[in-house]
Nucleic acid binder design. Structure first.
Lengths: 226, 226
DNA sequence: CAGTACTGTGTCCATCGTACGCTAATTAAA
DNA sequence: TTTAATTAGCGTACGATGGACACAGTACTG
């Protein structure tokens, strides 16, 4: 019931010639403006009013093109994901390319980590990304379930890193870091290992570390299966 | 500035004897009721009004104990996380215990996957979980940054699995699955591998698969470092 | 007993998503 | 060419939300 409206927005059908006035708005324009808004001011800044202001139209005009806010966010999400990358090489280099492309794609749109998550209706771009990753795993001895697990593992890693690097919008990331430093200064005796871990300046590449770990583990499973 | 209020809620200071009327409410009661509400009806059902109704008080009474909704959610989060587990054995069995305990802890509170994420002010329980995981990694040759990376990897895996298993609250998970089946039925020609992957009934244990992959990869890095 | 600090409450407000009906524009049918 | 059907954008209105603020009563302190 509600899911139908998501499908309608994400998979538009080509209607014939329409009758009324020429539309001044379009799903594409709305999505582009909403994405820009979310990139600049965070997802919670994407309100119907602000969106309409940015587009120079009335708030209610948006509802002619998008049934509601949820569907709008789904549309933003699939649009911002963009078209999937072309992969080459064996499964390992292919998956590495895939994950790095996803990382590059997510970085300018940190809010994707909140919207491209959980049970949801897939859009064409998202399905394309999934298909590309499964293509890299084709020919390995992994079963269908396990291939999906691997994709979930890699996309989960990208999301986690985006969240870690990104920052909450309500309060600044620097504020949070300050607050946590203050907490550790006050209660650090109870958490010595944590204090020690945060004491060192983080110079390593968390994305690379996690990606290598995952691919190493997947290689072991492929070796098992083969 | 805003982060201060989070610290104040999560790390309460012991004030001396207070003067006014005996409080009928407490942070603990509020948190418990809010957690129950979120477990039953989803995080977005946790509204100040409903929370007050459940507690039998006026909406504004809540603000005497919790400065705002954000801080309330932070409090719910740290409370629902509970106390960290005791680990034994080598790093590998310790981390496995840790991750399985987190998985068991998250399952009754799927909304944790949305709240225990991103830059945020840590509460005592959350720091305790972190300390426990770092304890398991103590003695391995990994550097401080890499230890934090491992913990992020494991907690990210738990979150991803909770989201996958849980379900969106707005629309039923079954609805979403139906919608996606319809989409694949209509546009499946463009995504043959995806169709094939979803065609098989998922009998595997995604949590176990991912956990094993990650631990295998971490073992390789520890071997490198050692 | 006075004063003071604190809890719970009622009222009020800006903002949010969105339902509904009107108007004007455009094309299909007569 | 007229007329009817359909559609885009808009204005108004409504319920729900988070929260500011002032006021009441209550308990401890002097």
């Amino acid at each position: 019931m509600t899911a139908d409206t998501f499908t309608a927005v994400l998979w538009p059908e080509d209607h014939g010639p329409r009758r009324g006035p020429k539309p001044a708005l379009s799903k594409e324009r709305i999505a582009a403006e909403a994405i820009a808004l979310a990139d600049n001011a965070g997802l919670e800044a994407v309100t119907m009013q602000r969106l309409a202001d940015g587009l120079g139209c009335a708030k209610m005009a948006l509802y002619r093109h998008v049934p509601g806010r949820g569907e709008l966010i789904a549309l933003m999400t699939d649009t911002a994901l963009g078209t999937p990358p072309e992969l080459d090489g064996d499964w390992r280099t292919g998956l590495r390319q895939w994950t790095e492309a996803a990382w590059r794609g997510f970085t300018p749109h940190p809010w994707l980590a909140y919207t491209a998550v959980g049970p949801r209706v897939f859009g064409p771009n998202e399905l394309g990304w999934l298909e590309a990753a499964l293509g890299a795993l084709d020919g390995t001895g992994l079963g269908p379930d396990q291939r999906l697990d691997v994709v979930a593992l890699l996309s989960g890693h990208v999301r986690a890193l985006v969240l870690q690097a990104g920052g909450a919008y309500g309060t600044t990331e620097a504020e949070m870091i300050d607050a946590n430093h203050g907490i550790l200064a006050a209660h650090g005796d109870d958490f010595p290992l944590t204090v020690a871990a945060f004491g060192h300046t983080g110079t390593d590449n968390a994305f690379e570390f996690g990606l290598t770990c995952i691919l190493e583990g997947v290689a072991a499973r492929i070796a098992d299966a083969g």
